[in-house]
Amino acid sequence: MMVFWAILALVVGVIVAVGLARMLGSSERAVSGSHNPQALSVVGSALLSSFILVTAFLIASTWSTYNTDRQHTYDEARSVTTAYWLAGKLQPADRDRVRAGLSMYTDQVIADDWPAMGRHQTSDTAAATLDALRVEVGAIKPATAADEQDRADVSAALDDLYSKRLIRAADVNYSMPSLLYLALVIAAVLLVAYPPLVGLTANLRNTVVLAGLGAMVGLGILIVIGLSHPYSEPLSIAPTAFRHALQQFTQING
């Protein structure tokens, strides 16, 4: 899937660049070659610097957010594993119910939450499972003070898991300001359109070079958009942390 989106971005960039070359590279100024080299150099450098500045800022910002969101999934997975381990201190019947609920929640995060997060939503089913589990642990009636402490430990672990889930839900709905994307697109179009606009003729060699520029610009825009939506294609974060948690459940049981 990642290869498909990368190829699509390259193709779109090439089409835009070639189209601009054909439209603007056939003008009278382009054919005659009349231009001011000093002025063109200044303007061209300014356009290139603008695109690099906007792209670098967006990639740095979205990459940081992307890594933070991925780290949050591992934090939540560690919380569910901790709760699963602490549930082993409960009485056998309570332990089995709580661990079964945690396994169900983890399965639902993978099967239900992840597809929903690609649509900037979270699964109501997984949320309901976690809420019911917290209520169930709160309703346990320990026979001794030691049992009460064990129940309190599990309850605190579930509260921590709930907080981590809320953080992940907030990550899903975060997005970069639209104005930044608009600035990126405008800078990209001006950068690709500038050479034919000021005199680059639309011959085969120049068109191929401009197509390469358009492809790289398109790929840069794809990277920015992909990183800014970490749970959607083409750079979506996988539920690896929760799959690993399920493996740890098996190890704990063993």
Score class of each variant (00 low, 15 high):
A132K: 13
T240V: 09
D107S: 06
I140Y: 12
R134T: 05
V3E: 07
R243K: 15
A116F: 10
L235N: 05
N173V: 12
S79Q: 04
Y74D: 10
A169H: 11
L191I: 00
A241H: 04
G212C: 07
P115M: 05
D107K: 02
L219K: 06
R97E: 10
L90F: 05
A21C: 07
K141D: 11
Q251D: 15
P142H: 07
S175A: 15
K89G: 13
S232N: 13
M1E: 11
Y74V: 04
V135R: 14
V208Q: 02
L210Q: 02
K89L: 14
V18C: 10
F249P: 10
N206H: 11
A241E: 04
S79P: 01
S236Y: 08
V109L: 14
M23P: 01
D160L: 10
L10V: 11
T55D: 05
L213A: 15
T81D: 00
P92R: 08
L86F: 12
V217S: 00
A146R: 10
G33D: 11
Q251R: 12
I110T: 04
N206R: 10
R97T: 10
D150P: 00
A238R: 14
L190C: 13
K89C: 09
N203G: 09
S61R: 02
R22W: 12
K89P: 03
L158K: 06
A111R: 15
Y84P: 11
W114D: 00
I223H: 03
W63V: 08
V18E: 03
S64K: 09
E233H: 04
A56F: 11
L40D: 15
E28I: 10
T81A: 14
A132V: 02
V137Q: 09
D150H: 09
Q71D: 13
F249S: 09
V154W: 07
P196K: 00
V217Q: 02
A170W: 07
A169G: 10
A17M: 03
V198A: 05
A188V: 00
R151F: 00
A183W: 15
Y181E: 06
A56S: 15
E148M: 04
P195W: 00
R243C: 03
A46V: 14
A111M: 10
A156Y: 04
L58N: 02
V208A: 12
G118P: 05
R151I: 03
A183L: 15
G199Q: 07
G214P: 06
L58K: 06
V12M: 12
L200P: 02
L213W: 08
R119S: 12
H120Y: 08
A128P: 07
S163E: 13
A83N: 07
D107R: 08
V31Y: 08
L86S: 01
A202H: 12
L8K: 03
Q91L: 11
L158P: 03
S178I: 11
V31S: 09
A60T: 15
W85E: 08
D171H: 07
